[in-house]
């Protein structure tokens, strides 16, 4: 028998470019290893060296208050990535679980969950994060809660629509007739089919969360000084762009590199 699928050229799946992973890995490694060579920490001030260039103690120079840019950048990147990932993972768990519930049970459960998710979509995402900031005192926890509250909708909608057709497929019907439970069906039928798309959504989600954290920091309603955070650092260093363009460029470039890498990884998989 001639199998036509074997002859026809394989569907060209655009693989993520290796540079995207290299850039992302470089930024992460820098953020993790910098504290090993750094002696100042993100808060120690050496006022006499304010806005001066790199030296042996601070290889990336000093900011306007004489703090080591290397230490502050490392701290800021770690904070943004950790927060973004924590909120995306939380959102994915909640979104997929509710998506499964809605598509499995159908009926009024589905209607109710859709109503909730649709009405939350009507609220601006930044506003939700700000509201969480008012309710919860700790800025980091409020970001985590606020971002997860925005992001779960994407995962819910994606997994619900995919699971609806999957659950009606003969393969799942067969599994149910044969006596398999929901856990087996999820692990063997639903998750393998949904994984590629959901991982893409997660990569976009992390990128989006980093952007939200930086944006709120930039307009001074996010992380509070003296916490090192990329958006906050940008707005603090902005008045000194003439004297120390190098210092201002660092948070901008780091943010840009992370977002570019994440978006191209996510974009390539679809």
């Amino acid at each position: 028998m001639v199998d036509l699928t074997a002859i026809a050229p394989a569907k060209t799946v655009r693989r993520p470019a290796p540079w995207a992973f290299i850039v992302l890995a470089a930024v992460v490694v820098l953020a993790l290893l910098a504290p090993l060579i750094d002696q100042l920490g993100p808060y120690r001030q050496v006022l006499s060296k304010a806005l001066s260039g790199p030296d042996m103690i601070a290889p990336l120079g000093y900011d306007h208050l004489g703090r080591s840019m290397l230490a502050r950048m490392a701290y800021a990147v770690r904070l943004s990535l950790a927060l973004a990932m924590a909120s995306t993972v939380t959102a994915a768990f909640i979104g997929i679980a509710l998506g499964m519930l809605a598509s499995w049970r159908g009926g009024w459960t589905d209607t109710l969950l859709r109503l909730v998710s649709d009405s939350m979509l009507a609220l601006p995402a930044l506003l939700l994060v700000l509201i969480a900031g008012v309710i919860v005192q700790s800025t980091a926890v409020s970001f985590w809660i606020g971002l997860a509250a925005v992001q779960w909708i994407e995962f819910f909608r994606l997994s619900r629509s995919m699971m609806r057709s999957l659950i009606q497929s003969p393969a799942v019907e067969a599994a149910r007739l044969l006596g398999f439970g929901p856990v087996h069906i999820f692990c063997h039928h639903l998750w393998p089919e949904m994984r590629p798309l959901l991982l893409t959504a997660a990569a976009f989600g992390v990128a989006n969360a980093i952007m939200v954290i930086a944006a709120l920091g930039f307009v001074s309603v996010g992380m509070r000084a003296p916490t090192p955070e990329m958006g906050l650092m940008m707005v603090e260093l902005l008045p000194y762009w003439r004297e120390a363009p190098w210092a201002l460029a660092q948070p901008v470039l780091a943010c840009f590199a992370i977002l570019l890498a994440l978006n191209s990884i996510a974009g390539a998989k679809t």
Binding site: S169, P170, A171, A174, A175, L177, H188, P192, E193
Partner: peptide
Amino acid sequence: QKLWQDPPSAFARTQ
């Protein structure tokens, strides 16, 4: 039990 019209669709595609 049941047999389906389109045999490939009655099995998990990825395993």
